[in-house]
């Protein structure tokens, strides 16, 4: 009787716990062993984004990115120790700024790094660092051709169907992702207003 109780009630629970412990420790081991790599990837990704937004050619290799970043970018922290904005340096003089900006997207928040000149009269570039748009549709905002449309201009931008933009203020929307394009445009246009008024664009 006792053995049956053991077999039907206790053993499955013990077994389940054992299996859980084994698998979770294996997974945790793998996680911990790659954690530094993931952190490095993330910081490198951010550095690349800032350089891209500042219209500085981004080198392919990680070490080279670090070097360029250190010589061209100065991080300005706010009172809480977080990055408030980046100063872009040219011959040790401030030539422009890069800031985080963001707002709602179709699915979740969209966050970008927006770079602009010291005179606050032109965007130097836009790079998206966080977005959860549909892969292959809205997620195409991360594609080169879409981001390049904002470089060197000063909006406010209007959307036109993909492949028809001609005037400086026109931006090609992404076919099948008009709403994501709308959200992105709103973020950028709002940031532009902030920039013109001499404020820092922000995460909304």
């Amino acid at each position: 009787m006792k053995s049956r109780f053991w077999k039907e009630r206790i053993f499955p629970v013990v077994f389940m716990v054992a299996v859980t412990v084994v698998f979770i420790s294996v997974v945790s081991g793998i996680y911990l062993s790659t954690r530094d790599m993931v952190k490095l990837n993330e910081s490198l990704f951010l550095k690349r984004a800032v350089l891209y937004a500042a219209d500085i050619t981004v080198p392919g290799k990680g070490a080279a990115v670090d070097k360029v970043y250190r010589s061209r970018v100065r991080e300005r922290l706010d009172s809480e120790g977080l990055v408030n904005h980046f100063e872009i340096l040219e011959d040790n003089e401030i030539s422009g700024y890069a800031v985080f900006a963001g707002g709602p997207g179709l699915w979740g928040k969209i966050e970008a790094v927006i770079g602009f000149t010291e005179m606050r009269d032109k965007l130097t570039g836009v790079e998206f660092i966080k977005q959860n748009e549909t892969p292959g549709l809205g997620a195409r905002i991360a594609e080169e051709w879409f981001k390049e449309q904002f470089r060197g201009k000063m909006g406010p931008f209007v959307l036109v169907p993909e492949g028809t933009a001609q005037a400086e203020k026109e931006v090609n929307a992404i076919t099948g992702a008009t709403r994501t394009s709308n959200f992105v445009l709103e973020i950028i246009n709002q940031s532009l207003e902030d920039i013109k008024e001499g404020e820092w664009p922000k995460l909304r």
Binding site: V27, I30, Y31, T34, M37, V38, N41, E42, F45
Partner: peptide, 8 residues
């Protein structure tokens, strides 16, 4: 984890 580490 592998994707995150190797092809972020």
């Amino acid at each position: 984890i592998a994707l995150k580490a190797f092809v972020p």
